[in-house]
Design a binder for these strands. Structure first.
Length: 294
DNA sequence: AACTACCCCAACCGCGATACA
DNA sequence: GTGTATCGCGGTTGGGGTAGT
């Protein structure tokens, strides 16, 4: 059984939206809210397929869309996030308020990708090119586009070990904070069907201090939901947890060495609380090697 | 002014994921 | 548990705008 088309194409408008269509869609969503895209065109009286309505709303009509050029700061953030996430445009867009995945994708393809291509030329300095260097999973994209639409991804230089987070193929099941080590160690398993705790916006579910050990084990699933939640995480409970440990000298979990070892992580809490992803990236970087595909 | 080549971006397409009956 | 509907995402396309000749 073949896949059914998303909608009957006959009699439907295609191509650019008219101002009248925009108004109808905007008015309808303002009254009835988003969702039910399949039936929306019929109910709203639009000769468009639901997909088209959804796309138009999300990418253009939504009131919180930010217009105007991508700023330098935004570009920096896009580059860093792309390095971290690859072509996960929706995830990247989620970190840039008012920007859509489509906009960022287009911007990447037309601007940043071009810069990378230019800077990857032998004449370009490696220092500069490294800024745009990105491990890019889109090698499957057809590089031999024959039209004049030269937006195909350039073959990106790969002179630096990948730090891409592959949120689907890989799975981290445990974070192991060693008391005698400065860094967080992430046990990396692939395809292990082990139950994982539901990551929430509170860091506390990650912490399951065992009474019989001075190690902290955290179970979680590394997927985009986790990553998204992680990026939104309020780490203040971790700081409180740290203070609790400091104050409770009888707790078997507590040891001076473990406190010292957690200092590195906990001091980063200040960075995290600022919700500034640019400061988050350096914190993540030490972990990223564990997150690469082996 | 006319033509061509290129650029940009809105829109489309196909597929996987998820929800639901 | 299974099949179907729907949603959401990433890749791709096409057309309008514009710079160059």
């Amino acid at each position: 059984m073949g896949r059914r088309p998303c909608c009957a194409k006959e009699g439907l408008n295609r191509g650019a939206w008219t101002a009248m269509e925009d108004k109808i869609l905007t008015d309808y969503i303002r009254v009835h809210g988003e969702g039910k895209w399949r039936s929306l065109p019929k109910r709203a009286g639009l000769k468009r397929c639901g997909k088209s309505c959804r796309l138009r709303w999300l990418n253009y009509l939504r009131p919180d869309i930010k217009r105007g050029n991508i700023s330098r700061d935004e570009e920096d953030l896009i580059i860093r996030l792309h390095k971290l996430l690859g072509n996960r445009w929706s995830l990247i867009a989620g970190r840039l308020p008012g920007r859509t995945d489509n906009e960022i994708k287009n911007y990447w393809n037309t601007n940043i990708g071009k810069k990378i291509q230019v800077l990857s030329q032998p004449s370009a300095t490696s220092t500069i090119s490294n800024r745009y260097n990105s491990s890019n999973p889109q090698s499957k994209q057809n590089p031999s586009r024959t039209t004049d639409h030269s937006v195909a991804q350039p073959p990106l230089p790969n002179t630096e070990p990948s730090r891409l987070v592959r949120t689907k193929a890989s799975r981290c099941t445990k974070v192991f904070i060693r008391p005698d080590h400065q860094n967080v160690t992430i046990h990396h398993n692939v395809g292990v069907g082990e139950a994982a705790s539901d990551p929430g916006n509170d860091i506390s579910p990650f912490i399951s201090a065992k009474d019989d050990t001075s190690d902290f084990m955290m179970d979680f699933e590394m997927d985009e939901n986790f990553l998204s939640d992680f990026l939104n995480t309020d780490f203040s409970p971790l700081y409180e947890f740290h203070n609790d440990l400091k104050g409770d000298t009888t707790d078997t979990v507590t040891s001076s060495s473990s406190l010292d070892s957690n200092q590195n992580l906990l001091s980063s809490n200040e960075m995290l609380q600022s919700s500034d992803l640019q400061s988050l990236a350096p914190l993540l970087d030490p972990c990223m090697d564990w997150l690469q595909d082996q």
